[in-house]
């Protein structure tokens, strides 16, 4: 057992076991696909949560990194016949490069400016997906992306894809938990609470913000590649502003600065539109409503807000004022 799993061993392995059983309990292809999407969205939310929930840096263009992963994988495999795994690695590298180039100037901005800059970046990337039709297939998208294969087995069965995607997501979950509880994680939270104090305490905030931006972009890129190889067809509309907002909603519902909350947020907001048949037309209305209500009343996010209340109660009984966050 590698050391990095040991830390949250119990929680992560219990969760992994639970998720491993899902394909035995869920036989319908439709619901298995739903669980696969939950896995992809969880991976995305985990990354965005590190950036937004922990470091307090908003990104309204995160769909762009998801798209960069998907498109790089798609283009390399479809147009250049690169095999999927190396293509996926290349996609992560490309995304990291883009994240660095855009992150270095962007993360110097704060507050509203950062929000607008990431939003603008997201829209530019989306326009590129749509307009560079020679490379990306334009508005109609890219078809025929091959599925991944592992040890000679082509992963075109939802059951296989399910295990692959959740395997990656659980790994990312463990990594997130480790980062959050480390020297670096503390420094990230410190930036969120008071950037001047973090700097005075010796934290190179500029560098750390770029690091977490890149890590969260890499998560998104990985999710994008997995998505592309799973659905085998991608088009620009999956990577637009609305998707970025959905990701933010997942983080907000999950609770800013809670790794397990990110899983909850992604699961709830992925399942909800599918479970409620009539949801579809109301989807953006409900997402918008959730964002407003949660942020007005529980700015720490839904689960975080409840967790805080619960912990406050626990600490209150032990005579310690307020909760350890």
């Amino acid at each position: 057992m590698p050391a990095f799993f040991r830390h949250h061993l119990l929680h992560v392995s219990a969760f992994a076991l639970l998720m491993a059983l899902v394909p035995f309990m869920v036989t319908s292809r439709y619901y298995l696909n739903l669980f696969i999407f939950i896995g992809i969205h969880t991976l995305l939310t985990l990354g965005l949560n590190l950036l937004m929930g922990y470091a307090g840096q908003i990104s309204l263009g995160h769909a762009a990194f998801f798209g960069l992963g998907a498109y790089t994988s798609g283009i390399l495999t479809v147009t250049y016949h690169v095999s999927p795994w190396p293509a996926m690695g290349a996609a992560v590298l490309v995304t990291i490069m883009v994240a660095l180039v855009i992150g270095v100037p962007t993360l110097k901005l704060t507050g509203y400016y950062l929000g607008m800059a990431t939003l603008g970046f997201g829209i530019i990337v989306n326009i590129c997906f749509r307009e560079l039709s020679g490379i990306t297939g334009g508005p109609s998208g890219l078809v025929g992306i091959p599925p991944l294969s592992l040890g000679g087995v082509v992963l075109d069965e939802p059951r296989y894809v399910y295990y692959l995607i959740w395997g990656v997501t659980l790994g990312a979950l463990a990594v997130s938990l480790n980062i959050v509880d480390s020297r670096v994680g503390r420094a990230l939270r410190a930036i969120h609470d008071s950037e001047v104090a973090a700097r005075a305490s010796g934290v190179d905030t500029a560098r750390l913000k770029i690091w977490v931006f890149v890590v969260s972009a890499a998560y998104a890129s990985l999710a994008g590649s997995l998505y592309a190889h799973f659905v085998t067809f991608i088009s620009p509309s999956s990577f637009g502003f609305m998707f970025s907002v959905k990701l933010v909603t997942m983080v907000v519902v999950g609770g800013m600065a809670s790794v397990w909350g990110a899983v909850f947020g992604a699961a709830t907001l992925t399942a909800l539109p599918e479970v409620l048949a009539a949801f579809h037309d109301y989807e953006i209305l409900i997402f918008g409503f959730i964002l407003m209500v949660v942020m007005i009343f529980l700015p720490q996010g839904l689960t975080r807000g409840f967790l805080d209340l619960a912990e406050r109660w626990r600490f209150y009984r032990r005579g310690i004022p307020a909760a350890k966050v």
Binding site: I179, S182, R183, V184, R186, A187, R189, A190, H192, D193, S194, V196, A197, A198, A200, S201, G202, V203, W211, V215, A257, K324, V325
Partner: peptide
Amino acid sequence: ELFERMSVLENVMVGRHPRTRAGF
């Protein structure tokens, strides 16, 4: 200027940042 959502101990632990090394 405290890190007000962090515990007292964690606040001081952040102060160890420049004397420690573990990275991402």
